[in-house]
Simulated scan of single mutants.
Amino acid sequence: MSESTTIETRNGYGTALAAVINFPEDFDASRTHPAVIVSHPGGGVKEQASGLYAAKLAEQGFVTVAYDASFQGESTGEPRQLENPHIRTEDVSAVVDHLTTLDYVDNARIGAMGICAGAGYSANAAINDPRIKAVGTVSLVNIGQMFRNGWDGSVKDADAAPVLGTGADARTTDAQGKDNPFPLAPMREEDAPNEELRQAWEYYHTPRCEHPNAPGFMTARSLSQIITYDAFHKAEAFLTQPLFVIAGSRAGSKWMSDDLFARAASEDKSFHVVEGANHMELYDGEKEVAEALGKLGPFFADKL
């Protein structure tokens, strides 16, 4: 059972989040339940990976929420497709705000997880917001690291200065009324540098999982916030909640999961590697998703 809802944010930007709340089979509105917020990848929407994980976690006994980020999907906000990481982190806490108003949610048992950039935002939200009591990540991406350092972490911070310049230039042309899209995944198959990122193109731009609300790009001005952003800022001090990290053994992005795991202050943290899986296969691969959920469900049940 599920229902659509709208969540008003208090982030100062006046956005409203379009969300789907999923209920466990034994849901009883007269008692309280644990809840898990599921955040989508950069460029994704709630009808894709986050919705899949949210629905499956509900089957394991949780109230779950999958939502569209501010400025994206069915949520409100201009300019469309803005990927401001600070606001996306705030969105997670905005969902927590909403959950605390629901009589059937136990405020002491709210967890958060995400896929790809949504996992990074979930970690960042938990650093800032101790109301989040447990954190799960799948194919985690720290979007700042990815755009600074490249998919495999091989680029030095300072060498990302031209990309920062692209974001600044886009702000100038935006002010002149021009649109500046910037791809979050390859927009064409021939643009993909490897099989893993070819699958990213396939996921967003073919019947594999394409959705009209997920165009696969962001505003180029977003780069001016992304390049200097660190989803793990002060994790060494404040990410003290139980943490469960999941990544594929063949994921080019795995180094970012390794980094969060090393930096998190939590004394209760676990890392599960899905052998043979790449980054994208944990979005929708039947076997890979089942393995991830087989770990996340018990983790949240134990910690919430």
Score class of each variant (00 low, 15 high):
16 A>K: 12
34 P>W: 06
196 E>Q: 08
243 L>V: 08
228 T>A: 13
101 T>C: 02
109 R>H: 02
135 V>M: 04
27 F>D: 06
16 A>P: 08
133 K>A: 05
242 P>D: 01
266 S>G: 04
9 T>Q: 05
237 A>V: 06
53 Y>L: 01
231 A>C: 03
267 E>K: 14
92 V>T: 07
81 Q>L: 07
69 A>C: 12
187 M>E: 07
17 L>D: 10
72 Q>A: 15
257 S>N: 09
297 G>L: 07
217 F>Q: 01
30 S>M: 06
45 V>M: 07
83 E>R: 04
234 K>A: 11
286 E>T: 13
182 F>V: 03
73 G>L: 03
174 D>A: 12
177 G>P: 05
5 T>F: 06
273 V>F: 02
231 A>T: 00
12 G>P: 08
207 P>Y: 02
283 Y>P: 12
149 N>F: 04
122 S>Q: 04
88 R>A: 12
259 D>F: 14
211 H>S: 05
36 V>P: 04
209 C>D: 06
54 A>G: 12
80 R>Y: 00
250 R>L: 11
171 R>C: 10
287 K>R: 15
134 A>C: 05
78 E>W: 08
4 S>I: 12
72 Q>I: 11
47 E>Q: 08
279 H>M: 05
295 K>T: 09
45 V>S: 10
217 F>P: 02
188 R>K: 14
51 G>D: 08
47 E>C: 02
251 A>D: 10
138 V>E: 00
62 F>P: 09
120 G>H: 08
184 L>A: 09
143 I>D: 07
111 G>T: 01
119 A>T: 01
152 D>R: 14
69 A>Q: 13
35 A>S: 01
78 E>A: 15
210 E>F: 15
178 K>F: 14
249 S>P: 01
82 L>P: 15
176 Q>V: 03
66 A>Y: 15
14 G>C: 05
249 S>D: 04
235 A>D: 06
292 A>I: 10
